[in-house]
């Protein structure tokens, strides 16, 4: 449980938000040409990092907008928050 600084609404309680999992997983450009292995990689395989991880969050009980977050999963410390489409900050 922690506070999240929504880029649209400001600081709110984490329970207003929905975690959306790992960020920057690109949707395949040519889905019809993907092998089963590549589909598995895209759909299911995750980095699941213990440490600094890039992820998507949604302010589900607020502005309902999606944004990105850089968070240390070993202590839940938020390192950075940036809007969708913006370049992720370098580590």
């Amino acid at each position: 449980m922690f506070l999240i600084n929504c880029p649209y609404c400001g600081e709110r309680d984490q329970q207003e938000f929905k975690a959306g999992g790992e960020a920057h997983i690109e949707r395949p450009k040519q889905p019809t040409e993907l092998s089963d292995d590549e589909w598995a990689e895209y759909l299911f395989m995750r980095k699941n990092i213990k440490g600094v991880q890039f992820e998507r969050w949604n302010h589900a009980h607020g502005c309902r907008k999606w944004f990105n977050m850089v968070r240390d999963t070993s202590n839940d410390e938020i390192k950075a928050i940036y809007k969708m489409g913006e370049k992720p900050p370098s580590q």
């Binding site: 449980m1 984490q14 329970q15 929905k18 975690a19 999992g21 699941n48 990092i49 213990k50 991880q53 992820e55 969050w57 968070r71 999963t73 070993s74 202590n75 839940d76």
Partner: peptide, 10 residues
Amino acid sequence: DYVSYTQKGS
């Protein structure tokens, strides 16, 4: 619902 290794929880 988020990834965490903190052994705490909300």
